[in-house]
Simulated assay, not measured.
Amino acid sequence: MARLSGKVALVTGAASVPGLGSATAKRFAEEGAMVYCTDRDEAGAERVAADIRAGGGEAEALGHDVTSEADWDRVMAAIDAAHGRLDVLVNNAGIAVLRPIGDLTTNDWKLQNDVNLNSVFYGTKRAVLAMRRHGKGGSIINISSVVGQVGVPGCGAYAAAKGGVRLFSKSVAIECAVENIRVNTVHPGMILTNIMDVAMTDNAENYDVLVATIPMGRLGDPDDIANMNLFLASDESRYCTGAEFTVDGGMTAQ
Rank of each mutant, 00 (worst) to 15 (best):
L129H: 15
T252P: 11
G63K: 09
R53F: 05
R27L: 09
R126T: 03
W109V: 02
R47W: 05
P215E: 09
A78P: 07
M196H: 11
A161V: 01
E205D: 14
L98G: 07
A45P: 00
I140K: 04
S5I: 10
R40Y: 10
A177S: 12
G137K: 06
S22Y: 06
V128E: 05
W109P: 12
V186H: 07
N118D: 14
T252Y: 13
A233M: 10
A14K: 05
V11R: 08
H187I: 02
G249Y: 02
R74A: 11
M190A: 13
M34F: 14
A159F: 06
A130K: 12
S139D: 04
K26P: 11
V8S: 04
F121K: 11
A23Y: 05
V198L: 13
T185R: 02
D39S: 08
D223W: 10
A2Y: 13
P188I: 06
I52A: 08
S237I: 09
V247W: 08
A15W: 09
A33R: 04
V35Y: 13
M200K: 15
L111T: 15
L232N: 07
A157H: 07
D224H: 11
D39R: 05
R74F: 01
H134Q: 15
I214S: 08
G19P: 12
R238Q: 12
R133W: 12
E205C: 03
D221E: 15
I101V: 13
K26T: 14
A29C: 09
R53T: 03
D51E: 15
I143M: 13
I195F: 08
G137T: 03
M76S: 01
A49I: 04
M76C: 07
